[in-house]
Amino acid sequence: MSRFGARTRQIRERLRASDRRYSLRQVARRIGVEPAYLSKIERGAAAPPSEATTIRLARELGEDPDVFLAMAGKVSGELQEIIRKRPKLFADLIRQLRDAPDEAIFTVVRLVRDGDW
């Protein structure tokens, strides 16, 4: 069983325990694929789906689309486009932050400012 498939099934089954809308059949219908295909993906019998389907699946399961894409061995087209527009800048940035601790990375991510209330 692939990591992507196993993880998808684990999350879906957990949701299904409290909400029947997360049956394999209903989730497949909502993301626009055949139940048999989603079953194959979950069992690792089929490769992870396309980028668009992976994003729909992640959103349906309440997960982060970027993390789901990474599990599927993909990087979103949106991120690729961002890098392609300024390749040197973003390539340098990513390389420099590769081994940085999360705290260091957050210093370059925009934080929500807390004020006086």
Binding site: P101, D102, E103, F106, L111, V112
Partner: peptide, 16 residues
């Protein structure tokens, strides 16, 4: 550390 993720989620992280 609080960030906005995906334009619609407040993400609270406490790496310390």
């Amino acid at each position: 550390m609080i960030t906005i993720v995906g334009g619609g989620q407040l993400s609270f992280r406490f790496p310390k």
